[in-house]
Design a protein around this nucleic acid. Structure first.
Lengths: 290, 290
DNA sequence: GTTCCGCATGAATCGATAG
DNA sequence: ACTATCGATTCATGCGGAA
């Protein structure tokens, strides 16, 4: 019911360096992904050494550039590791190399992880933020800012508090008198556009998968950069958070991952209606077409 | 009275590219500065074009590398501008070039500016963060983490609020009764180490000076990376926030700025005891030695 | 002495207009 | 074509006067 038009889900099982080639040019509205960081998920992608990270990623970003619509956006969640006491520069290098490929580095959002990983080191504090790099193909791209407006700051809370004590009661008791409309217009002005700093907690309660991606993160970008029916791609699907949220928001989702375990987890999280489609006979696992 | 040992202040009037040469090798414990951003403050500093920013800054960072102690730290507050719809890459390039000079890029703190500049654009949100890049000469550097511990989560705020209503009054009225000590013990137990994300508002509506930094920013780094008597340097002093805070915390401060107006503002903000010293006869303005 | 409200003020960005 | 300037947009914060 809630998914009227087409919130289909396609999952590809395999290395995204190969699987991406099966996706059409200019066919994706939004890419949201969190690739394995250097030397993370060693057993999965063989553990890319920081010095080889850029070299490893560039063929992928080249494919992503190909499949993205000119009006589309690519959000890359990444953070450089500490390597021999320093922040490694592979993310900085990656940005500059992707620009050479033709990407525009439009913006860098900050994900402030409110409950970051605990720990203590002699010359370093806990790392509580990650980069959310925004890349585009063109200076003109789709952006639906009204979809992610947030309540205004403290002054609204405190200064409008009085209003709720008296006027809001009148508002309720005099429906249709025109008074309520004025109030709601006024209250509507208490929605402000957000900034490029996102405050979200990691979802530590998920026992199964190590993916700390909170659902609110892809949700925010999906609402901001796509409309229902648009195509959302995650080439490093992992436990499928981006795909699951895209489906829930009535977007078409494409997920790629090299591990079948992650496909199983994702399928369990997906809406059953679509799950049936995926399990149709003759549809090869990881190669689903609608 | 509060400044026992040696919180001297030396101010240099001139271009820091030249003035820095007058400072000894390995003599500074902490550099905290916020250089003019590319194409900003044109009327004041002449405006460095984004494409020439790295070239302009490298001779300065070379001098800073020379004057910093091996155990010292350099905190660079900077943020790249939007240029033709993209974030410019001069900050990324600067980091990599400074590494070639011999700097270690130890960490990147985020300054979350809660009250960022307003505005609305079709494809961009307000910019609410700036970089605080930490550079060092050596993997081993001085860091006094206990000096910047903060009260823990929300419950601390609420309990401390209650405290301030009742117990704090008692604390004030019963000095020496031991009650205050109990409170500070209790508070000490609820102190946590901070993260690499700092939430601070800019001080935009201060009457006298429009400080680029909130005082809390240099204060945090001075407490974290120096002890009383250490030397703190700001080669782009501006209205002198770093210098003023360093003096208040009984550190030796060195400030450099090219504009005499800023020197006057800084002198007005400094503790009068030192101001006298600075205005001693025969002490050339901007060339003060203790 | 509080609390409340009005107001000025920002390391901004885009698009249009002018030289 | 390429740069310089200007207006419009927008919101958290702290000060100061008022109730």
């Amino acid at each position: 019911m809630k998914n009227g038009n087409g919130n289909s889900v396609e999952l590809f099982l395999g290395d995204c360096r190969e699987e991406l080639k099966r996706i059409d040019d200019d066919s994706v509205d939004l890419i949201v992904t969190s690739p394995p960081y250097a030397d993370q998920r060693k057993q999965i992608y063989g553990g890319i050494h920081p010095d080889q990270y850029v070299e490893w990623f560039l063929p992928i970003s080249e494919q992503l550039l190909r499949v993205l619509k000119p009006t589309g956006t690519f959000i890359l969640n990444i953070k450089e590791r500490v390597h021999e006491g320093e922040r490694h520069t592979y993310v900085l290098e990656l940005i500059m190399e992707m620009k050479k490929q033709g990407w525009l580095w439009t913006e860098e959002f900050i994900w402030h992880k409110k409950n970051c990983y605990p720990g203590k080191w002699p010359n370093r504090f806990r790392d509580a933020w990650e980069r959310l790099l925004q890349f585009n193909k063109d200076r003109k791209f789709d952006m639906y800012q009204d979809e992610v407006r947030v309540p205004t700051g403290d002054w609204a809370k405190t200064r409008l508090k009085k209003l709720s004590d008296t006027d809001k009661i009148r508002d309720n008791s005099k429906v249709g008198s025109g008074f309520g409309k004025n109030i709601s217009n006024w209250l509507n002005r208490d929605l402000a556009y957000p900034t490029n700093v996102l405050h979200l907690s990691t979802e530590c309660s998920n026992r199964n998968h190590s993916a700390t991606f909170p659902e609110a993160l892809p949700e925010w970008f999906i609402k901001l950069f796509t409309k229902p029916g648009d195509v959302v791609l995650d080439p490093f699907m992992g436990s499928g958070t981006t795909v699951v949220v895209a489906q829930r928001l009535s977007r078409k989702a494409i997920g790629i991952d090299i591990l079948s375990e992650y496909h199983e987890i994702t399928l369990q999280r997906l809406d059953p209606v679509v799950e049936w489609t995926l399990f149709e006979p003759k549809v090869k696992y990881g190669n689903t077409k609608t």
